[in-house]
Simulated assay, not measured.
Amino acid sequence: MVRLTRAQQQERTRTAVLAAARAEFAEHGYVEAKVDQIAERAELTRGAVYSNFPSKRALYLAVLVDMVEHSATDEVPPSPPRSTAEALGSFARAWLERLPLADDTPAFGQMQLRSLARVLDDEPARGALAQVTRLEALLLALALESCAPTDAGQVRQVRRAELVLRLLNGSGPFADTALGFGDPFDVAHACAHLGGLGLADTWDPPHLPYVAPARACQDLWTPPEGLPDLITERRVGFDEDGVIAVLGINRLGAAEETIRAARPGDRVTVAVVTSDPAEIGRLVRLRIRDFTRCLRRVFTPDAWPRLHLVVDDRGLLASATGVPNADDSTEHAVRIHKGELVARADGRGAAYAAATAEVSNTTRSKRAAT
């Protein structure tokens, strides 16, 4: 008889719980599903379920993340879209492919939609979802700006991306019902037409001129290994010059400040931190991984920004950059140059300050001498 290690037993238990939970949620939906029934399906105790997942919501989010991670992906490289309208229409069609089939049960259809209706039933969770949606709009905008910026009338595409996501997600608590109403092809056509809409979209946040400069430093550091990038689904390396912004879930809007201010050639890494990795951390993983898979169906690799996006739920990257106790309101950023941390900033505007920081002459001369 083969004896399993503790880690192997934990993984087997977790796999059994996920399989049982998926069956329970698909049959009864999130609200009516019972943890006791999930434990019975998995032939485990209620305590064994909660030892792996601290709440029903955490378990539901884990099931959706597992569905996304194991969903089939289209490996055929897309052809570059010829216009913003074509890109938006293609993105909408990729997004709408998640609509449930006619013979799917209502509960499974909600899972297929990655629906969070009646799941995020408190203000912190809804606020986190709003921040993540804002980040999704930025990712779509950056892809649009890279592939076809000239036919849309302006460089920044964030407002256009926000309109598209509002249309695809619905505009209120009945968003799931709205997705089942009317013809999905009409929605895709409407998104394409937004490509020709004239918008005065500029980047000029009023607080940036008042942001304090980053503090110069010259610190060695040891970056963590193996952090997965939610955009490319590859492991992140930190061997390039650039900026790392450690942002709490309530400060994700600062991601655009980092990207817009970064110098050509910089590698920007946004590390999302939260005090609730079981729920909010999984929410970020679910939404961004699902979203970027739709983007990869439309945009070629050269349209991706020089951006890494990681969920730092164990605080490894935060600690390595000097923030041992990061929380939902953290905004801390550092500039990396030739393997050293050469500038630091904290608080509102920190991401912008680090992105605009220069390597000091003293630092340059010390490196030259060595």
Rank of each mutant, 00 (worst) to 15 (best):
P80V: 12
A20M: 09
A21I: 07
L167S: 04
K366P: 00
H189G: 04
F291I: 07
R14T: 11
L197T: 13
G265M: 10
E123Y: 05
R98C: 01
N52H: 15
E225N: 06
Y352H: 15
A117G: 00
V310K: 04
K366N: 07
Q37R: 14
R348E: 08
L18R: 08
R260E: 15
L179K: 14
L247N: 04
V187K: 09
E233Y: 00
S319H: 11
Y210Q: 07
M1R: 11
V311Q: 02
Q218F: 11
G29C: 09
R314L: 10
R134Q: 12
P100Y: 09
Q154V: 12
G349D: 02
T356Q: 12
E340D: 03
T321E: 01
D290S: 15
T177L: 14
A16G: 15
F299I: 09
P149Y: 10
A351Y: 03
R367T: 08
A318Y: 06
R367C: 01
T363D: 14
L88E: 08
A271D: 07
L316K: 10
P149L: 09
T356M: 12
D186C: 03
D66N: 15
A369M: 11
E340T: 06
L208V: 10
L142N: 00
A343Q: 02
V2S: 03
G253Q: 10
G242Y: 05
S83L: 10
G253E: 10
